[in-house]
């Protein structure tokens, strides 16, 4: 379960500071598929950064799988990201000089789990994503859809409880968007909690619940 209580986030703006999130409260049940919509600059990405522990709360509390995230050290947050959270970004965020296989393997490299079957696990995921024939290629040789499949495989490789997706279809055409959303549906059916940040209503409608971020609060 995810629970945010009265979460606030400020950014420096000139000599003063701008409040991006103004007391956000959110509760997401395990296995739930939630979409968060909002206009540009409404704080969607800030929200995702806080949920993914890529940024720290200025005030409020954050509970994830029974752990008080807001009290954790940087080291423990890194382990939490590795074990509990999978990220899918709009611009894929693949490391260009690593192969598809190496990109998907990366979270396992930083993991504390001693997996004997790392290679088999990665290959099975690439097969499931339909990109096993591209495993030795560098990301710049892939299409947008293929890149996003690699990113999804990488997000799933550590079997995290939470998948955070930031505009996952923002850089894709209509046909590819549909196939990626179908992938998300499959992942959801397998029991993962998914939070998608989007401004696309068609993407949001695939979720169980749609929330709107307006003036720094969820409605």
């Amino acid at each position: 379960m995810i629970e945010l209580r009265d979460v606030r986030k400020y950014y420096r703006s000139g000599s003063g500071k701008a409040e991006i999130l103004r007391g956000v409260n959110l509760r997401v049940e395990p296995g739930e598929y939630v979409a968060i919509m909002g206009k540009s600059g409404s704080g969607k990405s800030t929200m995702l950064n806080l949920l993914g522990t890529l940024d720290l709360l200025d005030s409020g509390t954050y509970e994830l799988a029974g752990k008080s995230v807001h009290k954790m050290s940087r080291g423990r947050l890194a382990h939490l990201r590795n074990e509990e959270i999978g990220f899918v970004f709009q611009h894929f965020q693949l490391i260009p000089n690593l192969s598809v296989y190496q990109n998907v393997l990366l979270p396992l490299t930083y993991g504390r789990k001693r997996l004997r079957r790392k290679k088999a696990l990665v290959l099975a995921l690439l097969d499931e994503m339909g990109i096993s024939d591209k495993k030795n290629q560098k990301p710049d040789r892939l299409s947008g859809g293929e890149k996003q499949r690699v990113a999804i495989a990488r997000a799933l490789v550590n079997e995290p409880g939470l998948i955070l997706a930031d505009e996952p279809t923002g850089s894709l055409d209509e046909e590819t968007t549909e196939s990626i959303l179908n992938l998300f549906d499959r992942v959801h059916k397998n029991g993962a909690t998914i939070i998608v940040i989007t401004h696309d209503i068609e993407v949001a409608e695939r979720a169980d619940r749609i929330l709107h971020l307006q003036n720094g609060v969820l409605v």
Binding site: G52, L54, R74, G75, A78, H79, R81, N82, E83, F87, Q93, L94, I95, L106, P107, Y110, G111, R154, N158
Partner: peptide, 8 residues
């Protein structure tokens, strides 16, 4: 990216 994936 590495930090997002869990690098300390």
């Amino acid at each position: 990216i590495r930090k997002a994936l869990g690098a300390t």
